[in-house]
């Protein structure tokens, strides 16, 4: 499977930043500090379970 990571990253950014460009930058920085570089993932990136687990933890706090 591929593309899930990009999908999750986009969802986190959309939900947290709500189109505020300043917040988009901050949330991307937070992800990079977790070891997830949003710019490196595309719709065809492999679904790495370790990264998906990290992103799931972030998404849990959005609920």
């Amino acid at each position: 499977m591929a593309g899930k990571i990009k999908q999750m990253i986009d969802s986190i950014i959309n939900q947290r930043a709500k189109d505020n460009p300043m917040l988009v930058g901050v949330i991307k920085s937070k992800l990079m500090l977790k070891g997830i570089d949003p710019n490196k993932f595309t719709a065809s990136s492999d679904d790495d379970p370790a990264i998906i687990a990290k992103l799931e933890a972030v998404m849990k706090d959005l609920k």
Binding site: L23, V26, K30, L33, K34, A57, D61
Partner: peptide, 11 residues
């Protein structure tokens, strides 16, 4: 700081 960042947009 990682957990704080997950929970809020406040800097």
């Amino acid at each position: 700081i990682d957990k704080i960042g997950d929970l809020t947009n406040v800097t």
